[in-house]
Design a protein around this nucleic acid. Structure first.
Ligand code: MN
Ligand code: MN
Ligand code: MN
Ligand code: MN
Lengths: 219, 219
DNA sequence: ATTATTTTTTAGATAAGTCTAAAAATAAAA
DNA sequence: TTTTATTTTTAGACTTATCTAAAAAATAAT
């Protein structure tokens, strides 16, 4: 079976949306993510259903089939491996990799991706802390929480980000927060839910908008 | 300016064809190379002329403009750098790289290609001995000849191949002929223009079909 | 210089992916 | 439970890149 670049982008979008929601993914949600009109999405959903990549019931949302899920996860695997390549080997910073990886993820060659995986020494996570699916489409989920849910007086390790937009990543760079950074929760302000945190020698206060986009786990 | 994948493939085909011929490149020649019908080619030529990538005069062939030439050469630069990457870093053999490079050459990122170039230590030639254009679109031409024009009793170094099809490259692999191999011309058979050649300890006879596809220069 | 052959262009059609505008179905509100 | 608002689908049109079939121009042959 052969999938076009466009089909792959739809499958990936649907996969990511289905991670957040339990029920079927809605046409509008896909349209927003793909940046297309709902009518275009409807057309594509019919096409993908025809190819047995998802189940589509008019007016109810869609759900990926196992075949569709595997296809989506394979694209995500490629995306994340390329991101590792760009950061580890080509001196890209973590806020520069996404757009290029969006292109590279569609390159079709099984050997290429297997060799790349080996060349990178079989990484388990991408530069943003997201897990890299294995060859069989398995994803190892870690028990991370968002920083905003952290407990007072505890120490956490930064393991990832929820928002991986260039703007947010640059904010983290500016304050020297990276994956692996140790964060000690010094104070919790109930009024606006801001946190005062010690990172190495520095102490800083972060708003809820920031803390709800950083993943941590207890050190 | 932005070029589509299809446009890039046309420009590349026209560039390569124009290397062989002095005059304008014909519609039919392009059609054959691109594997499309002449009518499709005519349509595309109008489009590329509109974008000032080539000059098109009905019924006369086409010629690339400087802008078109630079675009074509940039694609070729990317193609050949990726081929080096695949062979040097990902354990591809020289007969496996072309199809993947055909995809990778269309990835759009100036930083990506500059960093790749540096990562590969600024290679000057691809795995088939073809020169890699520099950032400014300059190509260093070497004074190579085809093996079939070699002189009796002289020693040559293999510097490239004319036919870089997988079949031909596998033939060369089988006989342990690679770029850098030293070839001594032991005998020239006038009747069928076959050559008897010594490669290291081995002696073998090659037909004109073979020798006219190997580039050499005097050692 | 005509006639015949080949090459190239035009005309009209098709498929993929997108859009706008309008209709139909579902969900929310009164 | 009607009415209203939102979501989704359908209908028809557009763009890019392709095709086939036919017309026109350029070459080659008689
Ligand atoms: Mn990404
Ligand atoms: Mn990522
Ligand atoms: Mn190649
Ligand atoms: Mn090559």
């Amino acid at each position: 079976m052969t999938t076009t670049l466009t089909e792959e982008n739809y499958l990936k979008a649907i996969y990511h949306l289905s991670q957040k929601k339990e029920s079927g993914v809605s046409t509008n949600a896909i349209a927003q993510k793909i940046d297309a009109k709902a009518s275009s999405v409807t057309d594509m959903l019919k096409k993908l259903a025809e190819k047995n990549l998802l189940t589509y019931i008019k007016y109810k949302g869609v759900t990926l089939t196992e075949k569709g899920r595997l296809t989506a996860v394979d694209i995500i695997r490629k995306h994340r491996l390329w991101e590792v390549f760009l950061v580890d080997k080509l001196n890209f910073s973590w806020d520069e990799v996404h757009d290029v990886a969006e292109q590279l993820e569609h390159i079709k060659s099984q050997k290429l991706i297997n060799e790349l995986d080996a060349f990178l020494d079989f990484p388990t996570h991408d530069p943003h802390g997201d897990p890299i699916p294995d060859k069989e489409g398995q994803i190892k989920r870690t028990n991370k929480i968002v920083l905003s849910k952290a407990e007072l007086n505890e120490t956490y390790t930064c393991v990832g980000v929820l928002d991986s937009s260039s703007e947010f990543l640059k904010y983290l760079d500016k304050h020297d927060i990276k994956i692996g950074s140790e964060l000690w929760i010094k104070e919790k302000e109930e009024f606006d839910q801001s946190l005062t945190i010690q990172i190495r020698d520095k102490v800083m206060t972060m708003s809820k908008a920031i803390t709800s986009n950083i993943y941590v786990k207890k050190s």
